[in-house]
Write a protein that binds this DNA or RNA. Sequence first.
DNA 1: CTGAAAGCGCTTACAG
DNA 2: CTGAAAGCGCTTACAG
Lengths: 356, 356
Amino acid sequence: MGEKSVNLKALAAHLDLTVSTVSRALNDYSDISPATRERVKLAADQLGYRPNQNARRLSIGTPETVCYLMPRQIGPNAQPFVAQLLAGLGEALNERNWDLLVSQADASVGDLASIERLVRSGRIAGLVISRPLKNDPRVNLMQSLGCPFVVHGRTEKCDDYAWYDVDGEDAFVTAINHLARLGHRRIGFIGAPLQYQFAQERLDGYIRGLTHNGLAHETELVQIAEFTDEGGTAAAGILMDLLQPPTALVCVTDMMALGALEALHARKLTPGKDVSVIGYDGLHFGKHANPPLTTMAQPQAHAGRRLGDILLSIIDGADPTKFHELQRAHLVQRSTDGPVSSNAGQANVSEREDSP
Amino acid sequence: MGEKSVNLKALAAHLDLTVSTVSRALNDYSDISPATRERVKLAADQLGYRPNQNARRLSIGTPETVCYLMPRQIGPNAQPFVAQLLAGLGEALNERNWDLLVSQADASVGDLASIERLVRSGRIAGLVISRPLKNDPRVNLMQSLGCPFVVHGRTEKCDDYAWYDVDGEDAFVTAINHLARLGHRRIGFIGAPLQYQFAQERLDGYIRGLTHNGLAHETELVQIAEFTDEGGTAAAGILMDLLQPPTALVCVTDMMALGALEALHARKLTPGKDVSVIGYDGLHFGKHANPPLTTMAQPQAHAGRRLGDILLSIIDGADPTKFHELQRAHLVQRSTDGPVSSNAGQANVSEREDSP
DNA sequence: CTGAAAGCGCTTACAG
DNA sequence: CTGAAAGCGCTTACAG
């Protein structure tokens, strides 16, 4: 146990060869005789030799490592997709024997410094940024550092770097179209802080959807909150307590939609019957919601793999601006969408109406 | 953009000093005059110098990196806790400026080779293994390699290495006690494949709980399936279709419990009223289940941080066998547990009863 | 207090 | 076909 692992020198000595020859044999140089190549490889296997990667990478001049910048936790279990994304990234990297680092620097100040340190210290050959802000300083930083990167999502101005995204605007147009077809004319929007580009896009889609269906965009129907279930509950509460409450709600994340369902339950309203709710993400968990959540599902199975492949291509020298990959979300109808209810449009009777 | 980052040599030249002096100044050696130390640090800041970590680590002889072995995906979004765990690990590592690698090797054959390569190639100083099997070859491998590691969970024989776990046996005794107090006498167990130690432990707890409450352990009440919601649905279906179906179900994961709820709904049974269901994990999502899921919640907020701290201690030379940290899960009562229903114990009328 | 030198474990032109 | 040597960018005894 703990036999110190053999290095090139020891292996060479064992074989009565120089490290130079052994190294080239191991790396399949053509100027090594087949005989010694085999002999070397056999001995390497037997002794369990593995080249020291720090030394190797220092020598070849690339860290053969890529970093995934984890979005910070917003509430408990808010990121069920991280594992899947990492699995996809790892799959792409494994094929080359590259490593996957994870770090937690977001768009705040101190974290920019940590990103800079990460790339300047030669630890990584590329970076995956996720959940970008409308104007994200990390993107600017990476550009000025000249380090390859790919964004999972987009910023407002996104033409000069690589990204992979799902079309949130289109998804919300689809959701509104669906609701309009069901007869809804007052549709509430439950959104996330607009500094996040995804939040802005989905709001844009909501507005475009309204316009497209000849519906007015009333600002009181737009409620912004943290993208957690509690945020969704709070926002839905405000909307349902309006004098003219909406008959349907679209939510920027499934988590918020789940929270919105709670607000409906608290008001004895049945989701899908009294009030329709459509979420966004397509989380598997939505199937078990009360009732099962209708949602705009994004095709997340291959996001990690694609992000990895794109990043590797860029590191290999491809033009980043060639990679603008936009996927579409699709409507998954479960049980929270339905035709506008007969008593729709009923005004809430507020105490204030009776006041002076 | 892309100014090639300065290295020690360039920085030294810029300062008219040798790399030797500059290195020691940067690392706060006491034999450097305060004046030049300040001068060096200032210049380093200005030029954005960051020591190349591959070189540094090769020189100091440690990779300053730790690896987290991700459990493989079992179904979509099956690992909502991975993000939280990584965040905790990262927090512990950040304090020393160490890196966090993630890899996906599980207990299968080819993956053992990849673990061996990982440690032999000097890329990592330690490893976090999760979701171990009863007898996990990864643990044996790490021991024979003499590489520090910590297990999230335990194997059957777990006295000679470090682990952090939640007491699943105790949790299931608690769950059974709770159900027994509510009058249940036929309690079904929905489990995962028993090669996983966690599955065995929870089954042990189930049996111990039954015994403790004077209830018989009937093998037909134990159903093993994959730990996904579909697995839970299938297992619950079999149990509820028994001639003498159980009046309560305990499930080894919340995911399986959510699946079990579906099986009850399909049979027009109301969870918490007709049949009680208790899950395990304490997933946040359970709050939004139909109805909200009662569960044995594990304190997962600090698992990552603890695992990181333990691993670092071992790397620093602490005795691994000193770290056997067992947390307790606690009952979170939501809405799927309730007193045994009045029509409990009613036999299913099967067609076979009418047969010859 | 600072410099010159060796070494970490590889890779890769360059000789022979 | 193989060897001797330089170099990757650091750190750290060892001199002076």
